[in-house]
């Protein structure tokens, strides 16, 4: 009887360990798979050609991805430029200045909006944004910005709320104004969390497929202004992966674009993690 229980405990432990290792290795597995599938096109053309050429002619075997890479960067950049200041300012306003009731009312709404699927944001873009700005990088950026705002604000408000009120009191009691206190103490204390929120929004925006695809125009060329149409990497995969079998190397090229997305996300996450650790060390988290 006792043996039975202990045995169960042990077996469960081993199973869990196995699952854990499996989950951890899934990352490596995906990485390996993506590399394996994109090797053919890498071997055929050079890296520099793939990454820095804008000649995209799958039928001729030319797979220059610069238009897609630059579109991705443009759209993500525009969305971050729009969303981050809005989020920081509103998060501070809602948690520091606004009446508590307003926060209590708005916070759940923001929370719920954070769960709205990206397709819906794409539909909204079609209805309201495309008629104004056309199928363009800017439309894509706006749609993405609005999509990530609830997520980012949610994180920021949560973090600002955890700054102890005694810390604000300490600064106020030295004769600092409310704004100085926010600027020098609250924001500083909340900085790691604010950055974490931005990182979260950035990775969301970066890999978003459907919402962008619906409004960005999907034209293969390097955008030169925000009013140009673009064709980000995820849209490229989504639009073409279903019917790539007939053209040689096409599937490999598309897998390479998936690999690029994958690598950027991983590097980005690891880097931001390191930055966060540094900041936390410098700010000196004790409480």
């Amino acid at each position: 009887m006792i043996f039975n229980r202990v045995l169960k405990d042990k077996i469960a432990g081993k199973t869990m360990l196995f699952l854990t290792i499996l989950a951890c290795s899934s990352l490596l597995l995906i990485f390996a798979g993506l590399i394996f599938k994109s090797l053919p096109v890498i071997e055929k053309s050079s890296f520099s050609e793939l990454l820095f050429s804008s000649k995209w002619h799958p039928l001729k075997g030319e797979f220059g991805m610069l238009p897609f890479i630059s579109s991705t960067l443009w759209v993500t950049g525009v969305s971050i430029i729009i969303a981050v200041p809005l989020c920081i300012l509103s998060a501070i306003y809602l948690s520091e200045y606004a009446h508590k009731r307003i926060l209590q009312l708005i916070f759940p709404i923001i929370d719920i909006l954070a769960g709205i699927p990206s397709v819906i944001f794409g539909v909204w873009g079609l209805i309201l944004i495309v008629p104004i700005f056309g199928y363009s990088i800017l439309s894509g950026g706006i749609v993405l910005a609005v999509m990530i705002v609830p997520v980012v604000i949610h994180v920021m408000i949560e973090v600002i709320k955890t700054v102890p009120s005694e810390l604000r009191d300490a600064s106020l009691s030295l004769g600092a104004t409310k704004w100085q206190t926010i600027k020098f103490v609250v924001v500083k204390k909340a900085l790691p969390g604010i950055i974490a929120g931005i990182v979260l929004g950035l990775s969301r925006a970066f890999g978003e497929t459907m919402a962008v695809l619906m409004v960005v125009g999907n034209v293969v060329k390097i955008p030169h202004s925000v009013m140009d149409a673009g064709y980000p990497l995820p849209a490229l995969i989504a639009n073409n992966y279903g019917e790539m079998m007939s053209i040689p190397m096409y599937d490999s090229a598309l897998m390479l674009s998936a690999l690029i997305l994958f690598i950027i996300i991983v590097v980005f996450n690891v880097f931001s993690r390191l930055i966060l650790i540094r900041i936390e060390r410098n700010v000196g988290y004790n409480s």
Partner: peptide, 19 residues
């Protein structure tokens, strides 16, 4: 702010500013 400047405050637990 100038009133508060006239008074130093020690709270129940020390709260060093994040710097």
């Amino acid at each position: 702010t100038h009133i508060r400047k006239k008074m130093g405050l020690l709270s129940q637990r020390p709260f060093p500013l994040p710097m």
